[in-house]
Each structure stands twice: as C-alpha cells, then as structure tokens.
Amino acid sequence: MQVQNPFPLSRDELLTVYRQMRTIREFEERLHIDFGRGDIPGFVHLYAGEEATAAGIMHHLNDGDRIASTHRGHGHCIAKGVDVVGMMKEIYGKKGGSCNGKGGSMHIADLSRGMMGANGILGAGGPLICGAALAAKYRNKGEVGICFFGDGASNQGTILESMNLAGVWNLPVIFVVENNGYAESTSRDYGTAVDSYVDRAAGFGLPGVTVDGTDFFAVHEAAGAVIKRAREGGGPSLLECKMVRYFGHFEGDAQTYRAPGELDDIRANHNCLKILGDQLTAAGIISQSELTKIDEEVMVLIEHSVKEAKAAPFPTLADLTTDVYINY
C-alpha cells in the first residue's frame, strides 16, 4: 500500500539529499584517514558532522544563486554541486583539480555552480556575497547570495559591515552562522559577547532565526523561508545553525579543549546523517536497505575519486606562472 510522505520533499529528492550528506561525510572521513597517512599536503578543515546545514540550505538554490564559503568548505562545495573527483584532485594538489592544483582545500571554487570559493580569510565572504547579491539585483532574476561563516568569523568586522551594507542596499543575502561551538580552539561563549545571533542581526535591522543545524528538515524549512523572502525583494536575513564538528579545527588538532566524553556524545547523539536516516526509515517511505545501497555507492565514488586524485599528474613548471592575469 502507498505510504503518505510526511516531508516537504519528494522521495527522489530525499534520496538525493541523503546521498549528498553521505557523500560529504564519506569524503571527509576519508580525508581524515588519508591526511593521517601523510598523503595530503597542507592543511584541511573537515565539515563532517555539519552536513545537514549545507544540504538543507543548498536544496533551495540553483546555479545562478551564489554562495561564499569558508575555510571549512568541502561540504558547501559538494552540496552546491561541485564535482567530487575534481575536489579530491584539488586537495591532492593535482592538475585537473577544481582549481588545477593552484588553490587547494581552502580555495575550491566553481563559479559555474555559483560556488564563489572556499576562503582562507575568515569573514571575507561577507563583502563578496554582498557584491554577488548586488549583481543579482541588477540582473533581477530573483537570484540570492548565501554567506556562510562560523561563530568565530561572526566577530570579524567584514561580517558586521556586510550585514549593514546588505540592509542599506536591501540585498538578497542570507547570512548563515554555522555555530559549531568553537572558533578554532576557543569556545563560542568566550569569543562572542552576545548570546544570540538573532539579537546581533536585530542590531542591523535584519530578521534572524536560530535552528538546530543537525536537523535537515529544520534547516530546510527555516532556509526556505528566508531565501523566499530574499528572492521576492524582502532583503537580507540571518540564519543561525547550531551544529557539531566531528573533527578538530584542522586535521591534527587533538581537540584537548573539549570536555571528556564530549566527542562521543556528539557522534552518538548529534549525528545529523543518522538523524536524517532515522527520520526517513521511521516514516516508512525509504528503507534501510535503500540507504545502505546509497552508502555503498558513495564509498565506491569516494574510492574512485581518491584513485583518480593519486593517479593524476602534478602541475608543471609551465603552470606556475599562468592564470595570474587574464592578460599582462
């Protein structure tokens, strides 16, 4: 018999969302292992644990909508549709990577997908997304800009100035605070004087809302409302997503600043992927075996991307000096 779908997404959409979140999770877990092996140069900041926020927001977006990401950008990239193999090659510093090996983990971008770049400078995306939104306003096609930043970067002047500018120019921007409780190793509460980001938004005349960032449906619903408002000319808003970070600030961070048992609790009780899986199976519209099949397919994809990345050639001396200017 036909089971009623209690969710605002179709069955196919739900499967896609689950696959997306699983892909992010698997991508990051694999990077964690390979980084530990010394396979990956530089440093990486992993998004694992935060997938529901990226997926919940990006589900509302098209390629014409722009996002400004953060140093912890892999999840945003995957949810915005950036090619996983290209990303993996990029993180390995290989030719054929998203940025031909010239950007690395912190600078993955795909402007054709509206992904304006992960960013190594905290809070830098605020002004940039105001510009993207200004361009969208000129084009007048209802496109929006999303600025992701962490609870740490929320204290950057650029973010505060951007909230003001977006308000002054009534730009279609959503400021998304990804509040995972830690600015690097420092707790959110130590570094941020105000308790609620909604209060901070109010200081700029922006409506704000706080949601459980580990609950895909909560994020999806709240994001849907503010994005719709922005598309219709209602102006900017702030969305705070409370979430958890599975790994350290960067790989190699022993996270000794966390309380004993904190990480175990996060993984056991705040695993957004498990929460989504449970919601879907409990409603009876998707079976565990379907999810398991997706899990297996994602494993194959990630394995494939790592193989491709390892096999890809490094850039050459000729690549060193190209792409600085369009012409010089």
């Binding site: 605020g126 510009g131 650029t158 100035e161």
Partner: peptide, 25 residues
C-alpha cells in the same frame, strides 16, 4: 551611481564580489 556607507571593507569587497558575478564595478 551608488553611494555607500562609510564602510570600506564592505563596499570594496562588494565591488569585487559583483565583478566576479558579471558586473564591471
């Protein structure tokens, strides 16, 4: 022609963001 608030980080950055999105600010 757009006046801006006295907020150089925001509007210089916005000009750069708009440039990356098809404008010539």
């Amino acid at each position: 022609m757009m006046d801006t608030p006295l907020s150089e980080s925001a509007y210089i950055g916005a000009a750069i963001g708009a440039a990356a999105c098809g404008m010539r600010p």
